[in-house]
């Protein structure tokens, strides 16, 4: 197991949120080379899960193991050498170029170093090549398209040389073509670089297409964990999301496809 959560719980301090939020009884693992999808409605606890796995937050119950070692006993750089989080983008007015961004991924490997080494630069170039942004290396992030920016951010995470790549809604702001590209990229990275992937997404169909297993969260609790066709069952989803759905199979990949049954569709 690359990462293992054992009975993990977490409660946001009451002051931090208007409505107190809690995560409870979370037990799962990501095996070496596995692609696990985490899905669920808004405020299911997906973002909290990412923060727990990257030690931004500490669990209030249970424990998380990283390659068998308790996460709580690792320092930040150790965690970052194992787990790389891909955020949804970079902040507005982020002033650096693609290459400078990707080189930031080398920080946990030598936090005391003032400038990156030649080896760091080579790793960063390989990461840029892997996501196809090498020719954009000298461009500032704010001159790129949404898809290019996403690939630059993924390259930064790859430069960390992690065992586990955690992606936070990687297709949130992307159109269909970039969604397809991202899906293909993740599968290729998983295959060629043997990096395990934890994909957090609203997009059930993307998750079903890309992932080996899915973890469905709702209201801070795990609802189901298993292969996409075991998790994406109409009655389960209807209970969790509170709307009528229809589950089909993708003609090409034989993976489940979830469609909303629009409440008014018949009356038009």
């Amino acid at each position: 197991m690359i990462v293992e959560a054992r009975g993990v719980g977490f409660v946001y301090p009451p002051a931090r949120r208007v409505r107190p939020f809690r995560l409870a009884d979370l037990t799962f693992g990501v095996a070496a080379g596995e692609l696990l999808g985490v899905i669920g409605p808004n405020s299911a606890g997906k973002t909290t899960l990412i923060r727990l796995l990257s030690r931004v937050l500490e669990p209030s119950a249970g424990e998380i193991l990283l390659e068998g070692r308790p996460l709580a006993r690792l320092d930040r750089a150790e965690v970052a050498r194992c787990v790389a989080v891909v955020p949804q983008g970079v902040p507005p007015q982020f002033p650096f170029t693609v290459e400078e961004l990707v080189l930031m991924g080398r920080f946990p490997h030598a936090p005391g170093r003032y400038f990156e080494s030649g080896a760091d630069r080579a790793t960063a170039r390989a990461a840029m090549a892997a996501t196809g942004v090498l020719e954009l290396a000298t461009l500032p992030l704010d001159t790129l398209s949404g898809g290019e920016r996403q690939r630059a951010v993924i390259a930064r995470a790859l430069a960390q040389e992690p065992r586990l790549l955690v992606l936070d809604e990687p297709t949130a702001h992307l159109d269909l073509r970039y969604q397809a590209e991202t899906a293909a990229l993740l599968r290729r990275l998983n295959r060629e670089r043997h990096v395990s992937i934890l994909l957090v997404s609203h997009d059930l169909n993307l998750a079903a297409e890309v992932c080996d297993r899915l973890l469905l969260l709702a209201g801070g609790r795990p609802v189901r964990l298993g292969a996409p066709e075991e998790v994406l069952e109409a009655e389960v989803l209807e209970a969790v999301y509170g709307c009528e759905v229809h589950v089909d199979k993708n003609a090409a990949s034989r993976r489940p496809v979830v469609q909303v049954v629009w409440p008014d569709a018949g009356g038009r």
């Binding site: 930040r76 787990v83 989080v85 955020p87 002033p95 936090p111 960390q160």
Partner: peptide, 23 residues
């Protein structure tokens, strides 16, 4: 001065900087 590199990472936002190993 010794933290100039970490200040660059802070431009990613505090949470992203932490996830890259910055205290």
């Amino acid at each position: 001065l010794p933290h100039a590199r970490e200040l660059n990472l802070l431009a990613l936002g505090e949470e992203a900087a932490q996830q890259l190993g910055v205290d």
